[in-house]
Amino acid sequence: MSEPILTTRNLTRKFGDFVAVNDVSFSVLRGEIFSLLGPNGAGKTTTISMLSCLIAPTSGDAAIDGHSINGNPNGVKNAIGVVPQEIALYDTLTARQNLNFWGHMSGMSGKALKTRIEEVLEQVELTDRADDKVEAYSGGMKRRINIAVGLLHKPKLLFMDEPTVGIDPQSRRRILDMVSDLRDQGMTVLYTTHYMEEAEELSDRVGIIDHGKLIALGTQKELTKLVGQQESLRLHLGEGITGESVQELFANVDGVLQSNALDGEVILSVTEAATALPGAVTVANANNIRIRSVDIQEPNLEAVFLHLTGRALRD
């Protein structure tokens, strides 16, 4: 788990004058799940496109499995599997016909391909629907076949570009479990997402990307250290209780660094939950605000992003 399978060096891509990916350098180690976490337009897909040799970097380079993306695209392509953000399948073919075609494109054939198709169909739990046309699938099922195509040839490195975007929570759960299984099987994955929870749940290490720049990189622990010893207190109030006045009230409580009022709840950044909570309860009682429940949250990646950019991860 120590040696990198992917190393990027000052990877940069411009579209005209616009810098979509700006001087990005990081490594992905064999056997780890590495997440690129960033909001819409951060440059995640552009990075993946360069790493899968679809677009050339304006400057910089990357080595995958020892092959340069600039110098030896074919070596790179042999090592990677790609699950694109936009589902890329032939709608009027069945899942099995799709897998058969994509398998051949990846250089597989014959019995080995046949066996492998059945394996990945099991893996994404679509064996019983394998002979239905993809156009008849639900969004979640399409996402799963989209993933299956990327897994077919057992790539050394799998790129998954926002594989859960736009699907229901249940399908999303299924896909996250699949990715966990992949890690258990020893697959190396470069995973992009704008969901903090996904990055937290899945990844060994996270790179936070914003406006094309890699602004932080490390394990979740390392990253949360960046925001100091902060914790969050989430006070659930009655519905309809919101507004600046509420926010102000709690901002003045001892030990509270920052107060944010949302609909029916207030999130307080605190140095220590245990010391700040009594003060908050006192203030609530004095103002006839009923606290229904309290969550104490360890520092998370959302907080890290907020801390680094001053913006929320989701717009």
């Binding site: 074919n74 392509k77 990677i80 694109p84 032939y90 250089g107």
Partner: peptide, 13 residues
């Protein structure tokens, strides 16, 4: 437009 061509190009093709 639908990305299948790009996807083919991510394979050794």
């Amino acid at each position: 437009d639908e990305g299948t061509m790009s996807r083919i190009l991510t394979t050794p093709t």
